[in-house]
Computed example of a mutant assay.
Amino acid sequence: MKFEDNHRLNKPAASVLKMYSDREYFGKKYATLAGVKDFEILECETAGNKFRIKHRSQQKSDTSSLPDFARKFLAEYNTVIQQDTWDLASGVGRLEIEIKGVPIKISADMKVSGTPNATNAFNWNVSCGIPLLGGKLEKFIAEDIKTKSAEDAVLSNKLLADY
């Protein structure tokens, strides 16, 4: 399942990319987001205009609307491993997300642009190879991403004041 999402941010692209490439931003963000616990940075590196961070956390999902079959894949809290990579010169990035124990692939290509206010344009891809049931699981994950993305955009705008 493919879908698009945009974060409208209240500073120029250069400030947004400075924030997105700051290890401390991730710690502050995940300490504040509702439904996230046990956040840990696994890897973080900057090389020239390239930035990469990989982190793990426990993230809550409202599984009450899920059919019984899907609840065997998703618990109330799931271990999520996310890697963000950025080419800071071009403003192009990529997210790759793994939900431990869930047979689904999640990624997003990103592009930050704009002055005086930036936009981060996300092109999401959520795929599950389980016959018949995979589409329902993809739809649930996509809706969960959309809900969390809106919260993330609000918090990112607050944290952007420091950049």
Rank of each mutant, 00 (worst) to 15 (best):
W124I: 08
A13H: 12
Q58L: 10
A150G: 15
K2C: 08
A13L: 07
A47W: 02
S64D: 01
D38K: 15
K11E: 10
S149I: 03
K148R: 05
S21M: 02
L33N: 05
I97C: 06
I104P: 00
D109L: 09
F26H: 12
S113N: 07
K139N: 13
T85E: 09
V102F: 00
T32F: 06
W86V: 13
P116S: 12
S107P: 11
P67H: 11
M110I: 04
R56A: 07
L160N: 04
K28G: 05
S61I: 03
E96I: 02
E45N: 09
N49A: 02
S156W: 06
D5R: 15
I53N: 05
F140Q: 02
V16Y: 15
G91F: 04
L137R: 03
K146I: 04
F69R: 03
A13E: 03
K105D: 12
K18M: 02
Y163M: 05
E98S: 15
L160H: 15
C128R: 00
S64M: 00
A121P: 05
G48D: 01
A118L: 03
V126C: 03
F3I: 10
L66N: 01
Y25E: 14
A150T: 11
V102S: 00
P67D: 15
F122W: 11
D68Q: 08
L133P: 08
V112E: 12
L66F: 14
S57C: 13
D68G: 12
L132I: 13
R71E: 02
G129V: 08
E24I: 03
D109W: 14
P103Q: 14
C128A: 13
N125L: 09
K139I: 00
K105N: 13
I104S: 01
S57N: 14
G48N: 14
L9N: 01
V92C: 09
N49M: 04
S65C: 15
E4P: 07
I106V: 12
E40F: 05
G129F: 13
N120M: 11
D22F: 13
E24Q: 10
L9V: 02
T79F: 13
G48T: 08
N157W: 06
D87V: 02
I53Q: 09
L42E: 11
G129A: 15
G134Y: 09
I97L: 06
A161N: 12
K11P: 02
S57V: 11
A31N: 15
V36T: 09
R23H: 01
H55P: 07
F51N: 02
L66M: 10
S61W: 00
I81G: 07
S127P: 12
L95G: 11
I53P: 01
K111E: 10
Y25K: 04
A34Q: 03
E76I: 10
P116H: 11
R23S: 08
A31E: 01
L155I: 14
P116K: 15
T46A: 13
K72H: 10
A161S: 15
K136P: 06
I145S: 00
S57G: 06
I81K: 07
V126T: 10
N10T: 03
S21I: 11
K28N: 11
D144F: 08
K100S: 10
I106A: 02
P67Y: 10
M1I: 11
D152I: 02
K100A: 10
L88N: 09
W86S: 03
I53F: 14
